[in-house]
Design a protein around this nucleic acid. Structure first.
Lengths: 241, 241
DNA sequence: AAGAGTCAGCTGCTCTAACCAACTGAGCTA
DNA sequence: TAGCTCAGTTGGTTAGAGCAGCTGACTCTT
């Protein structure tokens, strides 16, 4: 005989329900990121389900970034980052690519569409501190370009810093997620042979344009940057498709 | 004694690995959305893991939209939609809201930031077919406003149709995901008492602006629309926080 | 007394084995 | 032939046992 099931709950549909009830637990108790959740045995009692069902629910929540599981330590409320979005977006793009779709190009265009729209609003409105940080990043990129080391991390930081000026954490995270997904897939799928010096020049132009306050020039700078990436991408993607 | 583990794999880390290997299976075999995956017993043999571990991996993949599980039927490659993104975004917003953050406002601003940037590029470039569809949608909204029925679905369709003109499926899906997340959270958290006639007027203005080809006017129309939503939102959100 | 090693106990992780529940399709019944 | 029933397949759930990582208190050494 299975178990003395708690009255009031239907016999099936445990799994989907469990997830909801765990989420409700977090919301109802106002648990902040990093707060400890009940242990697996406790959740079993609390939710009236078996260990397996509880674990499956937790695994799903973990995949959504809602919960963080640390072996031998405990389960915690997750950081609610967009790591799952990156994961999903990257997989979707890779799978599409191998099926002959231009999914990588679409991902790049998504970034371009969003960033061109945002950068024009930034032109002339960035605080001096941010401009300085961007300046330092471009300088770092130029140093890295001369040394021949990769400048991916600097590129990521540049874009992140740029849109920090919009003063919306959520937006910043989403853009970073797009960058991460694109970067990961690009590394997995194609060998990009970009000239680092060109990349530096383009970033400096973006910075100068934003500093000058010329919206149209800023937009054009971003579009040039992405356009360059796109031309580097298309033939390789087509050849691999 | 547990099991004769397959040689070549470390003793631990099965779970994270299993997900990767199932994803690899999909990619390597070029499985399109909807294609059937091996059954659970087959996956057990194939991956050399127990039923539980296989199921936990599948649950995680399901949460990411990579896999679709149908009880009594089979497991299939998922539609790779952004349903998980909606889930995660909605939960993040709800949780933040109950902790006193203005997360709902941030979500709205995210939509505003992206859409204002995009709509200016659309102005004057929308094919007549899309303009006609938008016209029909606004007409439907006006009818719904008069009848007093909800016009949420029309609003969703309007925004979706609008950005279809950008010719990027991915972008369209992301925007729809943002809309869905916002709509769901809004319904859960606050009672909005919007005047449907105002909403209609604003959508008609957006349409007219886009048709006229005046980028600035289109941008202003979108900003007005979101600004109106924002003013309806702020006091309630603050009161509930 | 202070430091380092050990071990008991928590935690989550994996496995096995059995049974429940949803769906399909072949075969029986009317 | 039309409809029903039932067996077989698939995923869903439970149970109990043992494995693996982390912590902190205890003990042994210095």
């Amino acid at each position: 005989m299975p178990s003395a099931r708690m009255a009031g709950y239907p016999l099936a549909m445990a799994a989907r329900d469990l997830q909801e009830r765990i989420k409700k637990l977090i919301v109802d108790q106002r648990l902040p990121s990093g707060a400890p959740l009940p242990t697996e045995p406790e959740l079993m009692r609390l939710l009236g389900a078996s260990r397996n069902s509880v674990r499956e629910a937790l695994k799903a929540l973990q995949a959504m970034g809602i919960v963080e599981i640390r072996h031998g330590f405990g389960t915690y409320v997750g950081s609610m980052s967009f790591a799952p979005l990156i994961e999903g977006l990257a997989f979707r793009t890779v799978a599409g690519h191998y099926r002959g779709e231009d999914s990588l190009l679409q991902l790049l265009e998504l970034r371009e569409a969003v960033e061109t729209g945002l950068v024009s609003r930034l032109a002339g409105r960035l605080p001096e501190a941010d401009l300085g940080a961007l300046e330092a990043l471009v300088a770092r990129m130029e140093r890295e370009a001369a040394e021949g080391t990769g400048l991916a991390e600097s590129d990521r930081a540049f874009h992140a810093t740029l849109y920090r000026g919009l003063d919306n954490v959520l937006l910043g995270e989403v853009l970073e997620a797009f960058w991460d997904a694109f970067h990961r897939v690009q590394q997995d799928l194609v060998e990009v042979a970009q000239d680092p010096r060109t990349t530096c020049r383009q970033h400096r132009e973006i910075l100068d344009a934003v500093r000058s306050g010329d919206s149209l020039r800023a937009e054009r700078a971003i579009r040039d940057h992405f356009g360059h990436l796109r031309t580097r991408l298309t033939p390789v993607a087509a050849a691999k498709g």
